[in-house]
């Protein structure tokens, strides 16, 4: 079963979400060819051969329009005779997948967390409080893959064969006029981050965030915050993790001075390991945590930073 995967890129290389989607496509194809679709700047094969992609259809001109992207992926599927398309459940995938599914008349399962087994594919629902096994009733299928669920797999392949691709995609209606980077340079974007250090009102003011940033730096983690902290302007909104902010799924989530309201948990409860640091031993967050420290973040965080640095990470 030939599979097409569309890839989000940054500075000519596939993003982590893109490499995960490609890894998922390779596993799904189980030996059949996998074709990646890339638009815009591409350096070499963008890192896609290493995860097992055989061919990259490369449109030299970048695409910003969800409709053009959907046409481009559809054209790639027609060219290689694929009935399955995969993308990351990232900004690009969320915009392209629904259009593509409608164009194909394909069943769409968004935010899958594992390969299909026994005719169903798994995704998280109810903000991580349940999982659903979804059955697809159509021959053609579109999947988007939740970041950090499948991982980047070593496909053992050499370089992918990069082939110029210029299908008819119609006119662009969504025109990008500017880009604003979120977070400090070098930090992994929150939805893709494998480690996250987060803090809440317990930090008592934005001037105290240095100890959070230092621990994040020592652990190569991305910083985040609770909703109240973003709402009162101590931290930018893009750092807010929780029900109405960003949903994350890191391997490690460290929360300092966050009590663990149910809305916050909804955004972080899919983390593999949760560490909670709070002065209040009754904080509800401890019930959802794997490791806990009852203590003052102002004392605990610098010591954690020192211990992490001592490991020479």
């Amino acid at each position: 079963m030939s599979v097409v995967v569309w890839i989000s890129t940054k500075e000519g290389a596939a993003t982590k979400a893109g490499l995960e989607a490609a890894s998922f496509a390779v596993a799904l194809a189980s030996g059949s060819p996998v074709t990646a679709v890339v638009a815009g700047e591409l350096v070499g094969d963008g890192g896609l051969g290493a995860v097992g992609v055989g061919q990259v259809l490369h449109r030299a001109e970048g695409l910003q329009d969800s409709g053009q992207w959907a046409r481009c992926v559809q054209a790639a599927m027609q060219q290689v005779g694929a009935s399955v398309a995969v993308g990351g459940h990232d900004a690009l995938g969320k915009a392209v997948a629904p259009r593509l599914a409608v164009r194909l008349g394909a069943g769409l399962v968004s935010g899958v967390t594992a390969l299909p087994t026994g005719g169903v594919v798994r995704r998280n629902v109810f903000s991580g409080k349940a999982v659903a096994d979804v059955q697809v009733r159509t021959e053609q299928v579109v999947y988007t893959l939740t970041p950090n669920a499948f991982g980047v797999q070593n496909g053992g392949g050499g370089a992918a064969n990069v082939v110029p691709f210029a299908p008819e995609v119609g006119a662009a209606r969504e025109v990008v006029t500017g880009f604003q980077a979120a977070g400090s340079a070098g930090q992994v974007p929150l939805p893709e981050a494998e480690r996250v250090v987060s803090a809440g009102r317990g930090l008592r003011g934005p001037e105290h965030w240095g100890i959070v940033e230092e621990l994040a730096e020592a652990l190569h983690a991305t910083t985040a915050c609770s909703r109240p902290v973003a709402d009162i302007g101590w931290r930018p909104h893009h750092e807010h993790v929780g029900q109405t902010g960003v949903t994350i799924r890191p391997n490690l989530y460290i929360a300092a001075g966050i009590s663990g309201a149910i809305q916050h948990l909804a955004g972080v409860n899919q983390s593999k390991v949760i560490v909670v640091i709070n002065t209040d031993p009754e904080a509800p967050f401890f019930k959802a945590a794997d490791y806990g420290i009852v203590g003052d973040a102002f004392e605990v965080l610098p010591k954690l930073t020192a211990a992490a640095k001592a490991l020479g990470m």
């Binding site: 394909a106 169903v120 629902v125 349940a130 059955q135 009733r137 945590a289 794997d290 420290i293």
Partner: peptide, 21 residues
């Protein structure tokens, strides 16, 4: 085009392991 075959609740989280402050 799709339907849910089965919903499942995730396994309950084990007890939180406390580390002295």
């Amino acid at each position: 085009a799709t339907s849910v075959a089965k919903f499942t609740l995730p396994p309950a989280k084990g007890a939180c392991r406390m580390v002295p402050a």
